[in-house]
């Protein structure tokens, strides 16, 4: 599904190198987690994959189902099936959540040469999906993320993911700012989307999210590289012994 080879990335303005040769291969239907201390480059990786401005790729490649992601505009990546759940979802005043979602769903369908969803079909679909995420009609009507609590914003991200049905989902610290109940709700939303054709890259500091979203593979990232890869037990090792232990091992 996703293949990253020797990816080197620096900040465009400062020229500061953030990713120093990331290699990662994620098969269809699998859930990989990336853990790592602050500043290790986890969020940068998610931004570079989804096409945010401000980063320069100096070496390496990233492909999704063989297509060169780095050559595509952010909206083309989305239409190709990539989705990033933001760590800090952006507030868009004046644009209704539902209007936004319908625009997004239909824009993607149009780019893929599919027929647009009718207003009626869209409404039916969103109501059903919103219900399972405990998102009420008011939240759908309100401007995108405006006045939403931290938990509501994250639930809204998962709702978008459910509506857009991407193949490759990147979750950037989706657990940050969530209480236990909200984390459970969000995780259930994610788990409901797991299937053989869909892959997940879950970025997190903490092991607790991985109790709910069980990964197949765990990577540890430090200083712009993946320094260790293992099974779910690696996350537990982080939880009990901290990153310093792993970093020390590496050194």
């Amino acid at each position: 599904m996703l293949e990253i080879k020797n990816l080197h990335v620096e900040l465009e303005e400062e020229g500061k190198q953030i990713l120093k040769g990331v290699d990662l291969k994620l098969e269809a239907g699998k859930v990989h987690a990336i853990m790592g201390p602050n500043g290790s480059g986890k969020s940068t990786l998610s931004y570079v994959l989804s096409g945010r401005d401000g980063y320069a790729v100096t070496e390496g490649s990233a492909t999704m189902e063989g297509a060169d992601l780095l050559e595509m505009e952010p909206e083309e990546r989305a239409a190709a099936g990539l989705f990033l759940a933001f760590q800090y979802p952006v507030e868009i005043p004046g644009v209704g959540n539902m209007t936004f979602l319908r625009t997004a769903v239909n824009a993607q369908r149009k780019q893929r040469g599919e027929e647009e969803l009718s207003a009626g079909d869209f409404l039916k679909l969103i109501r059903a999906k919103a219900k399972t995420l405990k998102i009420d009609a008011d939240m759908l009507k309100r401007p995108v993320n405006v006045g939403f609590s931290g938990g509501e914003k994250k639930r809204n991200e998962i709702l978008q993911m459910a509506m857009l049905e991407p193949k490759m989902c990147i979750l950037d610290e989706t657990d940050s700012g969530l209480d236990v109940d909200a984390m459970k709700l969000v995780s259930e939303g994610v788990n409901a989307l797991r299937d053989a054709g869909r892959s997940f890259l879950v970025i997190t500091h903490y092991q607790r999210l991985l109790d709910h979203i069980k990964p197949d593979v765990v990577h540890i990232m430090a200083d712009g590289r993946i320094i260790k890869t293992g099974g779910p037990e690696l996350a537990l090792e982080v939880e009990t012994q901290g990153y310093a232990h792993l970093l020390g091992e590496e050194a």
């Binding site: 945010r52 909206e75 824009a107």
Partner: peptide, 26 residues
């Protein structure tokens, strides 16, 4: 905001318009 909208598949021109609407919303 522009990147957020584009990352959801909204092409840049439409996303720009939505950001203009967001700007005048108040």
């Amino acid at each position: 905001g522009l990147f957020y909208l584009r990352s959801r598949g909204v092409p840049k021109p439409e996303a720009t318009d939505l950001m203009v609407i967001a700007f005048v919303a108040e």
